[in-house]
Design a protein around this nucleic acid. Structure first.
Length: 247
DNA sequence: GTTGAGCGTT
């Protein structure tokens, strides 16, 4: 009865999809179906939901059989209060190269000026917020208060970090030194080199029975400084292999 | 239990 989108899209070739935005997170396709079906023949109602949580993303797709009915529904249901929220209904596009819709009529487009529209260009109003929008797309936003809190925290941390450096000049010099140090350090990039693999001789099982707590206590993070390549070479054969062998 | 710009499943 009310199980849309269970077997995939029915027939998009003869259906017109409407995008319903601003719907409540609790609104389901079953709730939208009767509402939209009142204005026309609805062949499918689909509400994308999260794969991990399974919650609604806040928008739905309603497929109409006829464009004129869909058009009517758009004007009729657009701005309607559903589940306590003011929904927004508009024609949906399928993909970046989706057909363009013009007042209920589907105009085959992607015109010749592909990508070069001098007249109209739906460029985003926000220029510096583009990054934020992208982030929000793959990850549903939660609450704005939290963001502010996080931002504040970051700021505080930055301030503290800056405080540490008394003289920027010194910092710069040190950075250069570090770079040079790294050059020598890269030697450790190939620790095993051509050394025979004793580990292979060992039981090809998972990580040897070594307590992580105990082990980490002894060699947590060897300081990059004061580490001879020789000394490192000898002791780097152990932590080199860890979970390479998996069953 | 929360949130709020956008374009989707086989």
């Amino acid at each position: 009865m009310s199980h849309f989108g269970r077997s995939g899209p029915p027939d998009i070739k003869d259906t017109y999809s409407l995008l319903v935005l601003n719907i409540s997170f609790r609104t389901t396709a079953d709730d939208l179906f009767p509402l939209f079906d009142r204005y026309g023949k609805v062949v499918d109602v689909f509400i994308p939901r999260d794969r991990r949580s399974g919650e609604s993303r806040g928008f739905a797709f309603v497929r109409y059989k006829y464009a004129d009915e869909a058009q009517k529904a758009v004007e009729r249901l657009d701005g309607r209060n559903v589940d306590g929220r003011n929904i927004m209904v508009q024609f949906a596009k399928y993909g970046p190269n989706a057909e363009r819709i013009h007042k209920g009529r589907i105009v085959e487009a992607i015109p010749k000026t592909r990508g070069r529209s001098r007249s109209r260009s739906p460029r985003p109003r926000y220029r510096d917020s583009n990054r934020e929008r992208d982030y929000r797309r793959r990850s549903r936003s939660r609450s704005r208060g939290r963001y502010e809190s996080d931002r504040y925290n970051d700021r505080e941390r930055d301030y503290r970090r800056r405080s540490r450096s008394a003289s920027p000049d010194y910092s710069r010099g040190r950075g250069r030194d570090d770079r040079r140090s790294r050059s020598v350090s890269y030697d450790s990039a190939s620790p095993a080199r051509r050394s025979p693999s004793p580990e292979r001789s060992l039981t090809p099982r998972r990580t040897p029975p070594s307590s992580p707590e105990k082990g980490s206590h002894g060699e947590r993070s060897p300081p990059s400084k004061s580490a001879s390549p020789l000394a490192r070479r000898t002791g780097s054969r152990s932590p080199s292999s860890r979970s390479l062998n998996e069953d």
